[in-house]
C-alpha cells in the first residue's frame, strides 16, 4: 500500500548497527523526501559511511528498518535496482573502455537497449572522445566522471553519494552538481556525504548531522550549512 505521502520517500526507523565493540549507528530515525538533497554531515567516525552502506544494502543493520515508497525494504535485489552509488573509489574496471564499463553495468541492471543512453551520458560527462580508451589510461578526474555516469545510467530513484567530488577539478565539480540537480528535479532522493561544506551547501536543501552514531540535527537548512554544522558539532570538530 503506497500512500501519497510515502511515495518516493526513503525513511529509516530505529536504525542501528553494532560492531563488536561499539555502535556505528544508534537508533536513527530519519526521512529523505523525494526531490531533495540531504547533506550527511559529521566528524570522522560519526556513522555517515555506515548509514550509506546500509541504505545501499552493502552493509546490514543490526537493528531497525528501512522503508522506501511506503514499503519495508526486505528484498534487497529490487531495492538495488533503484539505487545509484558513488563512493570513494571509482568502482570501474580499468582494463575495459569507458563504453564497455557502462555497457557492462547496464547489463547488470537489466537495461534494455541502453546504447543511446550510454552515448548521451558519456557526452554529458565529457568522455565522448575517450569512450573507446581503456580506463587505466584515465586520470582520476576522468575516472570519477565515468563513475558518475555509471551511477546515473539506470536513472536511480535513490542516489547515495559518499564523497562524490573526490578527484574532480572545478569544471568536474560543477558538472557533478548539475547532474545531481537534474536527478533531484526528476524526483530522486539524494543523500550526499562530503567534507566539502562549500560545495555541499550549493546543492543540499536539507541536512542530517551525525556524531558518534547519533542524530544531532535533521531538517531544512538555509544557505548557511556551515553555521548549522558548527552549532551542532562545534568549531573544533
Amino acid at each position: 500500500m503506497t500512500s501519497a505521502a510515502e511515495a518516493g520517500l526513503l525513511r529509516v526507523e530505529g536504525l542501528g548497527r553494532a560492531y563488536d565493540d561499539h555502535y556505528a549507528l544508534v537508533d536513527l530515525d530519519a526521512e529523505f523526501p523525494p526531490g531533495s538533497v540531504t547533506a550527511l554531515l559529521g566528524p570522522n567516525g560519526a556513522g555517515k559511511s555506515t548509514l550509506i552502506g546500509i541504505l545501499s544494502t552493502r552493509q546490514s543493520a543490526t537493528e531497525g528498518r528501512v522503508y522506501f515508497d511506503g514499503r519495508r525494504v526486505a528484498d534487497s535485489a529490487s531495492m538495488r535496482q533503484r539505487i545509484g552509488f558513488v563512493g570513494h573509489r571509482t568502482m570501474v574496471y580499468s582494463e575495459l573502455t569507458a563504453r564497455e564499463n557502462l555497457q557492462f553495468f547496464a547489463r547488470m541492471f537489466g537495461l534494455v537497449s541502453p546504447d543511446d543512453a550510454i552515448d548521451a551520458l558519456l557526452d554529458r560527462v565529457g568522455l565522448m572522445r575517450d569512450k573507446d580508451r581503456p580506463v587505466n589510461g584515465f586520470s582520476r578526474g576522468m575516472s570519477q566522471r565515468l563513475t558518475l555516469a555509471r551511477a546515473l545510467l539506470p536513472k536511480p530513484s535513490i542516489l547515495l553519494l559518499d564523497e562524490p567530488l573526490t578527484g574532480l577539478d572545478q569544471a568536474g565539480v560543477r558538472l557533478a552538481l548539475t547532474l545531481f540537480r537534474e536527478a533531484r528535479d526528476a524526483g530522486a532522493v539524494l543523500i550526499m556525504a562530503s567534507h566539502d561544506l562549500v560545495a555541499t551547501s550549493k546543492l543540499a536543501d536539507r541536512a542530517l548531522i551525525l556524531s558518534s552514531g547519533r542524530k544531532r540535527f535533521e531538517g531544512a537548512t538555509g544557505e548557511d550549512l556551515a553555521a548549522v554544522y558548527a552549532e551542532c558539532i562545534g568549531e573544533a570538530a
Binding site: D20, D21, A236
Partner: peptide, 17 residues
C-alpha cells in the same frame, strides 16, 4: 575483551574532545 575495547574507545573519545 570486547567490553574492555568498548570502554577504551569511549575513554579515548572523552579524552579527545
Amino acid at each position: 575483551a570486547l567490553t574492555v575495547q568498548a570502554i577504551r574507545r569511549r575513554l579515548a573519545r572523552l579524552r579527545g574532545i
